[in-house]
Design a protein around this nucleic acid. Structure first.
Length: 480
RNA sequence: GCCCCCUUCGUCUAGCGGUCUAGGACGCCGCCCUCUCACGGCGGAAACAGGGGUUCGAGUCCCCUAGGGGGCGCCA
């Protein structure tokens, strides 16, 4: 284990350390993103550590979900993911050192005693905490047959300071912090100990995590100091809240990133949104990955919690959708189908013709879609089989008058030999003019017949994409 | 209860003592464009939590209050 002081290391090392008890939720994804941006933007390393010491709740499925989520978001890490549980021996080794140095001690207090202490402290208006009764007691007084927990002998006077890159200089009075447990009475390391030892051993130089860990930072600092290890740079970023300002819960957006995938968001758009949530670079809203890497710094991180706003995410996603070149978007769309509701059925119905139509129609489709789900919805007419089902709006447009218009138009379209947008457009416009109709009075029934909907891409594009045979057939279906 | 943190338009935010009659983005409302829906263009309503200081001058610094958040486990 290298113990070079942080100041000697030129390379920045960050880490993302999720506990595998569920999916990668959106807050975790942002934490991972910030770590990634900071490290990658500075040519440093980003590590992944799985905090799986809670054997009851940790699952392999959760690890897979976290890894999938990160990959989908385009966040990579260096080396293999590290299991915290697997490092328990090393954690115990450190506790031995602490014990030998008189920086830790065995505590034989029972759970009942601890509960009493907490109650008493609370009644006296103090923080509920351990009273240190075994701190200086002679080990000879240890009760028979009781396995002790090992506690850190933390300083009881003075203060502990965390010089946080986001929160600023935060100070605690040591009297308000009790002697935390390092090793449970069953010999397993606690989270507080494991995190410090792992971050140190992994050479982590910058800890970027949610500000729910701010208090932990103080206690962990005490462990670093007891070991004489350099304390990494800390940056505690504000949490993400739901639209109502309360902590993110399932009914808000505390969904796994795979849920956002299923809602049809593009990873690049989500990344941009997440980066911009709680962090800013002047007035810049839309930024490329390169720009984010270049610009990201602690300076731009706000101190207040940010609310998750789906409307803004959706807007940004629409922007990215429109911005993506047709071929790339088509590829992304096809790839995402298995993850979209109804996407598998669509995929199953796809044939060569359908594929070609999607590619041809993408330019008009993407202009109107804010998500891939909307894109899927609006692409359905391309592969539907005749005769089409009409939605309510289309049915209303295709009343007697509408169908008559189509019947009148059909010969002119049938006579069109050049089935391309310019020619089709002039045929339809000429027809409208000749029959003294407004273009809309022709276009709408046409749209309804061709797509079964009241809305679609430009009608001339639809005609061209569908092709002569299919278009004339769909029109004929409605003129019966 | 105790400790810590936070507070600019509805939301994300710019602002790092004077250039702020507070800027941008999303959303919202009008108008324009228009074959539908979008896109786009133009315009509009909309905020410095409250109170004390400091200062020639405060959204920017300090204190208090209120409100919000986080933490107080032999969980992570």
């Amino acid at each position: 284990m290298s113990e070079s002081p942080i100041s000697d290391r030129s390379e920045i090392v960050t880490r993302f350390a999720p506990s595998p008890t569920g999916f990668l939720h959106i807050g975790g994804a942002r934490t991972a993103l910030f770590n990634w941006l900071y490290a990658r933007g500075r040519g440093g390393k980003m590590l992944l550590r799985i905090e799986d010491t809670d054997r009851e709740r940790s699952t392999d499925e959760a690890i897979a979900a976290i890894v999938d989520g990160m990959r989908w978001l385009g966040l990579d890490w260096d080396g293999e993911a590290i299991s915290q549980f697997a490092r328990a021996d090393r954690h115990r080794e450190v506790v031995e050192e602490l014990l030998a140095a008189g920086k830790a001690y065995r505590c034989y207090a029972s759970r009942e005693e601890l509960a009493e202490m907490r109650e008493k402290a609370r009644a006296e208006g103090r923080a509920p905490r351990y009273d240190g009764r075994w701190r200086d007691r002679d080990p000879a007084e240890a009760p028979e047959g009781v396995a002790p927990a090992i506690r850190l002998k933390a300083p009881s006077e003075g203060e502990t300071v965390v010089d946080d890159k986001v929160q600023g200089r935060v100070t605690w009075q040591n009297k308000d912090l009790d002697d935390l447990i390092l090793l449970r009475s069953d010999g397993t390391p606690t989270y507080m100990l494991a995190v410090v030892v792992d971050d140190h051993d992994m050479g982590v130089t910058h800890i970027i995590r949610g500000d729910d860990h701010l208090t932990n930072a103080a206690r962990q600092t005490q462990i670093y100091q007891a070991m004489g290890w350099p304390v990494p740079v800390m940056a505690h970023i504000p949490l993400i809240h739901g639209a109502d300002g309360a902590k993110l819960s399932k009914r808000h957006g505390a969904l796994g990133v795979e849920a956002y995938r299923e809602m049809g968001y593009l990873p690049d758009a989500l990344r941009n949104y997440l980066a911009r949530l709680g962090w800013s670079h002047g007035d810049d809203e839309v930024m490329s990955t390169e720009q984010m890497l270049d610009w990201f710094d602690f300076d731009g991180i706000g101190k207040a919690a940010a609310r998750f706003d789906f409307a803004k995410l959706e807007n940004l996603n629409g922007l990215y959708t429109r911005q993506t070149p047709d071929d790339q978007l088509t590829a992304a769309f096809l790839k995402s189908l298995p993850h979209l509701p109804g996407g598998s059925a669509f995929l199953g119905a796809l044939d060569e013709t359908g594929n070609a139509r999607i590619t041809a129609a993408m330019d008009g489709l993407k202009e109107r879609a804010k998500t891939l789900v909307e894109l899927l919805e609006s692409a359905k007419f391309l592969i539907e089989k005749r005769p089409l089902d009409l939605d309510a709006k289309a049915a209303k447009i295709l009343d007697d008058k509408g169908r008559q218009t189509l019947a009148d138009l059909l010969p002119a379209l049938t006579a069109c030999t050049d089935w391309q947008v310019p020619a089709l457009e002039s045929v339809v416009r000429d027809f409208a003019e000749r029959t003294d109709r407004k273009l809309g009075a022709v276009a709408q029934p046409l749209r309804a017949a061709l797509t079964g909907r009241g809305t679609s891409p430009g009608i001339f594009d639809v005609l061209a994409v569908l092709g002569r045979e299919e278009s004339l057939g769909r029109i004929a279906d409605q003129t019966g």
